[in-house]
Design a protein around this nucleic acid. Structure first.
Lengths: 341, 341
DNA sequence: CTGAAAGCGCTTACAG
DNA sequence: CTGAAAGCGCTTACAG
């Protein structure tokens, strides 16, 4: 009789065991690099696995309590490059480590974020990388109740116990503002993002700190909200202009708004950077293409994804990590939207 | 004794059965909307499921032969917006239909593409949406041997039997070229993509066809290869300029190259669109920001993802689909990079 | 209309 | 160093 095959005609651990004339357990030990198998037997089995192209069924492994080799990534959306780059960093690093990616988007809806926690248990993923908007204490509590490790990306947990990787937004904004100040600017407008965006807040803080450090008095008339969009960056700048409050530079807390600001400024007859200098934040693709090319702060987005994977895989393997919070540095990208005055 | 809980302290079908005082089978029938359960019992169970927040374990379902509610998406990369948008279309549509996404990137490496086929079996995903570069007959053969349905995105299968959703590149290029012709242009340069890119070829074909339709003789001196990148689009245009062969318009088979071309043209003192008109393909974000805003052909990328999901879910549910190949239409986006001559 | 039992492919004590 | 057996959470004939 030929070796029995399952319906899927897919090779199973049973087949390998039969071919190698050993028990399934022995094959399992080899697959999982566990002790208790003699070297010759181990090699024989490894060869058979190689030849037959056998690949263990993750679902079954997960069910039986072992690793699934999947890591879940929970992310609000994938439509903008920011998230796309994180996914890329996560995915590439995961691949190098022989893990697979399970992607869950929440579309920034709280129910979806909750659902994800219900859904993901040990038999589906070995660990979770989470980027969410509505992270409640409740959410974190349910997360902790599961046995799987998790890491937050780009979210500052109150809880000291939680692993997270973040970007130093405040310092990035500080450097950007300081750059403008060193160019001689004193009247620097600030374009802020949505109320709820903690990263916008951090950038505002950095802006304030730079002014203070250099003895420049903060003028609240010079800040306008542009909600992180191109369109509102445009209208915010128009408002700024109408107020008549003089400024020689703009620090926009993201590039999208900066692009809107450039359009508004040009429309009103201002030359950039001759009349107004401007620096953005994020270093999106468009910022190198716009005229003039925008000086901006680049975030190590890809690295965030990578670092999160490094942490989660270490955690999965039971390693301990000293530092629970990773703060990644930003980088100022000088282009042609600023000048000395 | 309190109801027994598994290690994960996660609710199982067993728990639900116990609470409802029925067998696991009955609960399973309810979960899967199968007949054989009386209405009152069904409702009772449904309520318990609701209250307990029970969610069946996909791994176990997959193993036991039922649906996993996962659909696998195999894609080369996620670093560019093109892929990111496809993922978005796929993911959103999947969510609406209560499916989850398993993402596999191949980084355009043949081994990875092969591996994916080995890896994905019925207990992991219910269906597969595939976007790959190296689709060999062999690959398709192994795919067919599995029991799971699959759809190709943006790939023209030779095999008539295979489901696929594509964009009508040829017609898009035809319309773009014709648009230029109707503006009075006769000497239209063509910037082509990589040799291996079938979409670039299709666009070239559309270009040729438009010339022919309008009785314009094709001049091979007017085509240069820019490999689909900004940089090579720039150098290709420089080469074109050096040749001294006159042209009044450029049709670039993607936007990246068009952006490079604009830079090259400007550098050499040409005004756009006064001296040279230019149209791109893809409608990437940068093309609306560049000066002048680029007229281009937009692809229904999101819709491709959506359509692929519609097909795969229908296939999963055993429905038959008349049309195996979907050809989606492009759209010409008029901006300010073209003018009459 | 409902339940007991086998089985999906794996891992993990446990016994030898 | 190796194997037989139980169990993970589910579904699906099968019997009643």
């Amino acid at each position: 009789m030929p070796p029995k095959r399952n319906k899927n005609s897919r090779i199973t651990i049973e087949d390998i065991a039969q071919i190698a004339q050993v028990s399934k357990a022995t094959v399992s030990y080899v697959i999982n690099d566990k002790p208790g198998v003699s070297e010759p037997v181990r090699n024989k089995i490894k060869n058979i696995i190689e030849e037959t192209n056998y690949f263990p069924n993750s679902a079954a492994r997960g069910l039986a309590g072992e690793k699934t080799n999947f890591v879940g990534l929970v992310i609000p959306d994938i439509s903008d490059m920011f998230y796309a780059n994180i996914i890329r960093g996560v995915e590439k690093t995961l691949n190098k480590k022989e893990y697979l990616l399970n992607l869950f988007t929440t579309h920034a809806r709280p129910e979806r974020e909750q659902q994800v926690v219900r859904l993901l248990n040990k038999s589906m993923v070995d660990g979770l990388i989470i980027m969410a908007y509505f992270i409640t204490d409740n959410f974190i509590q349910s997360l902790k109740e599961r046995e799987i490790p998790f890491v937050f990306i780009d979210y500052p947990p109150k809880d000291e116990d939680i692993y997270s990787v973040m970007v130093d937004n405040e310092n990035g904004a500080f450097e950007a503002t300081e750059y403008l100040i060193k160019l001689g600017h004193k009247k620097i407008a600030f374009l802020e993002g949505p109320e709820v965006a903690w990263d916008s807040k951090a950038r505002f803080k950095g802006y304030l700190k730079a002014l203070e450090t250099h003895g420049i008095k903060f003028n609240p008339e010079l800040v306008e909200n542009g909600n992180f969009t191109k369109e509102e960056g445009y209208t915010a700048t128009k408002r700024l202009l109408e107020k008549g409050e003089k400024f020689t530079a703009v620090f926009s807390s993201n590039d999208q708004m900066a692009i809107g600001a450039i359009r508004a400024l040009k429309e009103s007859g201002y030359k950039i950077p001759t009349d107004v200098s401007i620096v953005g934040f994020d270093n999106i693709e468009a910022s190198s293409i716009i005229e003039p090319p925008l000086t901006t702060v680049s975030q190590p987005i890809y690295e965030m994804g990578k670092k999160a994977v490094d942490i989660i895989t270490a955690l999965i393997n039971g390693e301990t990590i000293e530092e629970k919070r990773y703060m990644l540095k930003t980088k100022l990208i000088e282009r042609h939207s600023c000048t000395k005055i």
